[in-house]
Amino acid sequence: MKWFKPLFAIIFVLGAGAAVLVFSNETDNNENEAKAKEDNIVNIISSESKETSEKKNILDSLNTLKTAYDEAILEKTALSKELELERKNVENLMAIIKVSNNPSAEQIKIYRNQLSDLNSSLESRVQEIKKLKSQNKNLLTEIESQNVVMYQQKAENDTLLLKQKKLESTLKDASKLYLSNFKAIALREKSSGTELETTKAKNTKKLKISFTVNGNAVAKTGKRVFYIQVLDQKNTVLGDNKLIEFGNDKALVYSFIVSADFQGKSLSAYGVLNADQFKKGTYFVNYFDKQEIMGSTSVTLE
């Protein structure tokens, strides 16, 4: 059959072309899948690098802020004790951020809000110090101007000194509330129902978070609400884990709320965090009056 050989040649050519086309499509598909995987890995690394960079920037800012508090404390004004307390808040926040691994975008936002609050607090304190120094300088100028007639003007100088002391006292007794005596303890429960302090994670049934609201005669009285934030080793907010917004892009994720009836005098307050199981490690506790951090503490379970 003369037509057989040409027909066979045509079939062979068509088969070879189809094989090349299939191989080419498979190769393109494999290359596309490999590129997609590579792009995904790059995106993940880029995201982690961004959060890590954000964490470093916040730590650098906090370190600068701590240095500023150190300098302000060296002024030795009537606000030194308050400045030392706020510097401790900066140090505690730095410790929390340093132990955090791969913080999420939400955690970075919380850290930035806390950094902003601490910056605002320092700016306010610096203005108060400047005002106090300026007023003190004016008073000293008045006193020096009266030195020529010291005997006749002694009574007036004594009055100026009393005004200075009253001014310092007024600044110290500002309407803002302060918290102290921050404490977090783990509790276990005996069969009798008695609760005892423990350091063992496996025995822990709850965390008792306590603090003191310092007395302040000029502060507003009535019901005051404080927000407690408890973070585990992974920087996860335990408890209610609720988000509250305060306006001006200020927000807070908290574990539970503690209410106190403040009547101008010092009072103790506490709250309890229950959990099915507590793991070994350190738990960090932050205390907030609205969006402003008032203090921090921690408890370690073995």
Rank of each mutant, 00 (worst) to 15 (best):
159 T>I: 09
161 L>R: 10
162 L>K: 13
163 K>L: 00
163 K>V: 00
163 K>Q: 12
165 K>Y: 02
165 K>I: 01
165 K>L: 02
165 K>T: 11
167 L>R: 10
167 L>D: 04
168 E>G: 01
169 S>N: 06
171 L>I: 15
175 S>T: 15
175 S>Q: 11
176 K>W: 13
176 K>G: 06
176 K>T: 10
177 L>F: 13
177 L>R: 03
178 Y>C: 11
179 L>I: 13
179 L>T: 10
179 L>E: 02
179 L>Y: 04
179 L>Q: 01
182 F>K: 13
182 F>Q: 05
182 F>T: 02
183 K>F: 06
184 A>T: 04
185 I>F: 05
185 I>T: 07
186 A>C: 03
186 A>T: 04
186 A>Q: 14
186 A>P: 05
187 L>C: 12
187 L>V: 12
192 S>L: 02
193 G>E: 09
194 T>A: 14
194 T>V: 15
197 E>N: 11
197 E>C: 11
197 E>Q: 15
199 T>P: 06
200 K>L: 08
201 A>C: 10
201 A>P: 03
202 K>D: 03
202 K>R: 12
203 N>Y: 07
204 T>D: 06
204 T>N: 05
204 T>Y: 03
204 T>A: 07
207 L>V: 09
207 L>R: 05
207 L>G: 08
209 I>E: 02
212 T>W: 07
212 T>R: 15
212 T>C: 00
213 V>Q: 00
213 V>P: 05
213 V>E: 03
214 N>T: 05
215 G>W: 14
217 A>K: 15
218 V>C: 08
219 A>N: 04
220 K>N: 14
220 K>H: 10
220 K>E: 08
221 T>S: 10
222 G>F: 12
223 K>L: 06
223 K>D: 04
225 V>W: 08
225 V>Y: 10
228 I>S: 00
229 Q>T: 03
230 V>A: 08
232 D>F: 08
232 D>G: 03
234 K>V: 06
234 K>Y: 05
234 K>G: 00
236 T>H: 14
239 G>D: 04
240 D>G: 12
240 D>I: 06
241 N>V: 09
241 N>T: 09
242 K>A: 02
243 L>R: 15
243 L>H: 08
244 I>G: 01
244 I>M: 06
245 E>I: 01
246 F>M: 01
246 F>N: 01
247 G>R: 04
249 D>T: 10
250 K>Y: 01
253 V>L: 05
254 Y>A: 14
254 Y>F: 04
254 Y>M: 04
255 S>M: 06
256 F>A: 00
257 I>Q: 09
257 I>P: 03
258 V>D: 04
258 V>M: 05
258 V>E: 00
259 S>V: 13
260 A>M: 06
260 A>G: 10
261 D>Y: 11
262 F>D: 13
263 Q>H: 14
263 Q>A: 13
263 Q>L: 14
263 Q>P: 14
264 G>C: 07
265 K>W: 07
265 K>F: 11
267 L>R: 11
267 L>D: 01
269 A>F: 03
269 A>D: 02
269 A>K: 11
271 G>F: 06
271 G>K: 12
271 G>V: 05
272 V>G: 00
273 L>S: 10
273 L>H: 03
275 A>T: 08
276 D>K: 14
277 Q>F: 12
279 K>M: 10
280 K>N: 09
280 K>I: 00
281 G>H: 07
281 G>S: 12
281 G>I: 04
281 G>N: 13
282 T>F: 00
283 Y>L: 06
285 V>E: 04
286 N>M: 10
287 Y>G: 13
288 F>R: 04
289 D>N: 05
